[in-house]
Simulated scan of single mutants.
Amino acid sequence: MNNDRNSLSPEEERLAQRFLAWLLQEVIPNDDPNPGAGVESHRSLSQTRDHDPSSITDESIMQTRFQALLKRRIQQEIQNNPPLFPWETTEVWEYANDPIDEEADSRVPTNVWLPQLAQLRLPIAISEATLAQLLVRCQQVLRTSLRQGERLVAAVEGLFPERTEELNIWTERVLLWSTSRSGETLIEPSEGEFPRSYEGATPTQQMLLSLLAAKEIVESLSLNVSASHPSDRRQWLTAQGLLQLDAEYRCHGELPQLRVCCQIPDGGRVQLRGEGAIATGQRSTPGSVTVELADIQPQQTYTLEIHLDASEQSPLVFAICPTS
Rank of each mutant, 00 (worst) to 15 (best):
R196I: 09
L23Y: 03
N30P: 06
I306T: 04
Y198T: 06
A104H: 13
V153A: 11
I217H: 04
P109Q: 13
S44N: 04
L167I: 12
L117Q: 04
L146G: 07
N80A: 15
G158C: 10
I169D: 04
R14D: 10
E172C: 10
P286S: 09
V136P: 03
S9W: 03
C321Q: 08
D4H: 11
Q244Y: 04
S288D: 09
T301E: 02
N3G: 07
R234H: 15
S127W: 00
R173I: 07
V156W: 00
W22R: 02
A21W: 00
I278M: 14
A239Q: 01
F318N: 00
V136Q: 10
R163D: 15
S60H: 15
P33K: 06
N2A: 05
A277K: 14
V112F: 10
Y198M: 08
V27N: 07
K215R: 14
D58T: 09
A132C: 05
L120Q: 00
L24G: 01
I320W: 03
N2K: 07
E165D: 10
T323F: 10
E102L: 15
S228F: 02
N111A: 13
L131H: 07
P265T: 07
E150H: 13
C251L: 14
Q76C: 07
E150T: 11
E216I: 01
N30E: 15
R73L: 08
R143F: 00
V289A: 02
R43A: 08
C138P: 04
G274Q: 12
Q299I: 01
G287I: 10
H51D: 11
H307C: 11
E193W: 07
A154V: 08
E128C: 07
A201H: 11
F318H: 02
E88S: 10
G268W: 09
T202H: 08
S314G: 07
A37D: 10
L211R: 05
E59L: 15
L142V: 02
R151A: 14
I264G: 03
P99V: 05
S190V: 06
E216S: 09
